[in-house]
Simulated assay, not measured.
Amino acid sequence: MATSFGRATLATVAASAGVSVATVSKVLNGRSDVAPATRAAVQAMLLEHGYVPRSPHRRQTALTTVELQVDGLLCAYSSAIVQGAVEAAAELGAAVVVAIAHGAAGRQPSWAGDLVAAGRHALISVTNEPAQLAALARARLPVVVIDPLNMPSEPVISVGATNFAGGMSATQHLLALGHRRIAYIGGPANAASNQARMHGYRAAMDAAGVPVPPQYVRTPGYCYPDGLKAGAALLDLRPVPTAIFAASDECALGAIEAARARGLYVPDDLSVVGFDDTQIATMSSPQLTTVRQPLRQMGGVALRTALRLAAGERIESRHIELATELVVRGSSLAA
Rank of each mutant, 00 (worst) to 15 (best):
G50R: 12
A176P: 02
R180A: 14
I182F: 11
A204V: 09
L235A: 11
I256C: 13
G178R: 09
S16Q: 12
A118M: 05
R308L: 08
G254P: 07
V70K: 03
R181T: 09
A170V: 08
R140V: 02
V27H: 04
D206S: 13
A247G: 14
T162P: 00
T3E: 13
A62V: 09
T289N: 12
A37H: 12
P239K: 10
G221P: 13
E67Q: 13
A41H: 00
A335S: 14
D147Q: 11
Y222T: 10
N128S: 15
G30H: 07
M151N: 05
A89K: 03
P142F: 08
P220S: 10
H57E: 04
A302C: 09
A230K: 01
M45T: 06
A88R: 14
H57M: 10
A134Q: 12
Q279E: 15
I100C: 07
G84V: 03
V42K: 04
V98K: 01
S153K: 14
R140A: 14
D277Q: 01
G330C: 03
E316A: 15
A255K: 03
L307R: 06
Y216Q: 12
D33F: 07
R54T: 12
L303G: 00
A134M: 03
P267N: 06
Y77S: 02
M205G: 03
H173R: 12
C75D: 15
A76T: 06
P152K: 09
T171M: 10
G167R: 05
P220G: 08
A311K: 08
R140Y: 02
G178W: 06
R260W: 13
I256L: 13
R262F: 07
I320C: 10
M205T: 02
R59D: 05
V266P: 06
A137F: 01
L175G: 06
A89L: 01
D249K: 10
L175K: 05
G166Q: 02
V145T: 04
